[in-house]
């Protein structure tokens, strides 16, 4: 067993930082999309690890243990940012009647080519960046962590009806963003090249 504040523990932490900070950082960054915040979370993780090093019984590997601490830090962060703003389940927006401005579905039907193209995902990612933090958090947990919707609600301490409202609004925003920046511009671009 290791003891706090000794030469030995400092050496141990140093080794862990060198060995695991990259992947812990990548894990955190992909979830919070903010370099400084991700660095803080990793730093906090090692700090908590150092504080609790007495209780680390080596039942799990150090890597698993560190990931567990980091995951809890990320969830704490998600929760705190969720609590800043309360979500009103009632204010859901139905699809707008914008038949004239938005491209016809037929353009969306030819989406297979888009889904194969890198440019599409560059645009798509910038649309995701425009979502608010709540919406991005939900998508990260769903599509990066592969969590079920019930688990996400539990982790974020939100009701299921709130959850569906967040998902729906986020998708509506993505749809509008793609309508505006991909499906229209892309078509214009196609016309230009045909001339």
């Amino acid at each position: 067993m290791l003891n706090k504040g000794t030469e030995e523990t400092n050496k141990q932490i140093t080794q862990w930082v060198n060995e695991f900070s990259d992947e812990l950082f990548a894990f955190a960054y992909s979830r919070v999309s903010d370099r400084d915040l991700a660095k803080d979370l990793v730093q906090d993780t090692f700090f908590s690890a150092l504080k609790a090093i007495d209780s680390f019984q080596r039942k799990s590997t150090p890597k698993t243990w560190l990931y567990k601490i980091l995951k809890n830090k990320i969830i704490d962060y998600y929760r705190s940012s969720f609590y800043k703003k309360t979500i009103k389940a009632k204010s859901i927006q139905p699809p707008e009647d914008n038949r004239i401005q938005t491209p016809l579905l037929s353009k969306w039907n030819n989406v297979e080519d888009s889904l194969q193209s890198q440019e599409f995902f560059t645009q798509f990612n910038s649309c995701i960046e425009k979502l608010n933090e709540k919406q991005r958090t939900v998508f990260t947990m769903k599509y990066l962590d592969d969590l079920e919707s019930e688990e996400i609600c539990k982790k974020l301490q939100i009701t299921t009806s709130n959850y569906w409202v967040i998902v729906h609004r986020a998708k509506l925003k993505l749809k509008e963003c793609l309508d505006k920046h991909w499906f229209t511009d892309n078509q214009k671009w196609l016309k230009k090249t045909k001339k």
Binding site: S21, D22, F25, A26, K39, V42, F121, F139, Y143, L144
Partner: peptide, 13 residues
């Protein structure tokens, strides 16, 4: 979303 998240780039320190 499924495809986009599965090909997210990684970052190093």
């Amino acid at each position: 979303l499924k495809k986009g998240y599965s090909q997210k780039e990684t970052h190093d320190l």
